[in-house]
Design a protein around this nucleic acid. Structure first.
Lengths: 197, 197
DNA sequence: AGTAAAACGGAGGCGGCCTCCGGTCAAACC
DNA sequence: GGTTTGACCGGAGGCCGCCTCCGTTTTACT
């Protein structure tokens, strides 16, 4: 935005207004109907034509990424909380839970995220946030490994995939107990075996 | 079918012919374009009208279940192989791999399977095959638990979900190494901790 | 106020889903 | 073999969502 402002005109008022209305409406529709909601309905309820929506956000992923951007503040707030506690193992666990809840924000969200997580999609607007999350996860993993709590073979990418999977299963209506068992199963998988006695 | 044959007419020849053509064409389209393929295209290529397809298979899931039925023979053949080896832990591992490959038959297959796995959908045609697989998994789990190789807290349902997740991740184009690490992570999660030395 | 560029939005083509309904064909009966 | 019967077929069409063209409007700048 700085490039446009510095060299030339001020951004138009209706552009900002429409963009804000679209984001607000889209978030509500994603919440209510999942990421597959009708984009035409979003445009109509935001009071703009379909072309305006597609001009601002060329693809569904672009709109989704913009909406998620506003939601990610919550996640970085959690990060601040997590980094305060000293235990690296506990920090990793909480971070995974935070990511899982982030992935569960909208029904169907894990699918586009997983599709974007693979590197070979550089033009997918979700790829960058995904790689940021993977990098963050990797840092928590390394810290826990340094403290001897996590196996050396585990990578941040692995636990990102695991958290995404849990969110995917949750979104498909699995029971709470199944999810709890799966989470402990995964935790037992990445934790360093304690010297038994 | 026996009920129809016994009390009344012989089944019409064109019904069987159309059904077979639909199944054959649908399998090919599922293989090439995933489970979300156009059903109209399937009908057209099978040489029938759309109404005929919907009369035979009222929903996409019904068609999918019928196609999978023909594919499940391969799975029971694997079961026979697996049950020959005596090691319960090895049997469980191979069974999980067999399920995972079964779930990877068509792109996008894990999603409807996960949706059907939850019990509260009794009219979903995929629910029955899913519960059969879960029950089978549970038997392998119990056998491995009796041999002391798997933790007591693990249930067949959990590993069914895990295998489905792996297939889902695989279908989204994850790299082979990531999948290998995830599989070993899960295996470390369900295996009984060996008494270390 | 005038101007030019940027943005808007309605209309419309496309494709997929699903269903009605008039016609058709195979099986059964004579 | 001809007729009857009813199950079956398939095209037409309504609906909806996606996406884009293009004439019109809005906006910022002079």
């Amino acid at each position: 935005m700085s490039a446009d402002e510095q060299r030339g005109r001020k951004p138009r008022a209706d552009v900002q207004r429409n963009r804000a209305a679209l984001l607000e409406t889209a978030q509500r529709h994603f919440l209510q109907h999942g990421v597959g909601t009708s984009l035409e309905a979003v445009a109509k309820e935001a009071g703009v034509g379909p072309a305006t929506l597609y001009r601002h956000f060329p693809t569904r992923e672009a709109l989704l990424a913009a909406v998620l951007q506003t939601r990610s503040e919550e996640l970085v707030a959690r990060q601040a909380d997590i980094e305060q506690l000293g235990d690296a193992a506990e920090a990793l666990e909480q971070w995974l839970r935070a990511m899982e809840e982030y992935f569960s924000a909208f029904s169907g969200l894990p699918d586009p995220l997983m599709a974007a997580a693979r590197a070979q999609e550089p033009d997918n607007p979700l790829t960058i946030p995904c790689s940021i999350l993977i990098t963050a996860t990797d840092q928590y993993v390394r810290a826990a490994q340094s403290a001897g709590h996590v196996r050396a073979s585990v990578q941040g990418n692995d636990l990102f995939l695991a958290a995404c999977s849990i969110a995917w299963i949750k979104g498909n209506g699995a029971e709470k107990e199944s999810l709890d068992r799966l989470r402990t199963l995964i935790a037992s998988g990445y934790r360093q075996r304690d010297t038994q006695a």
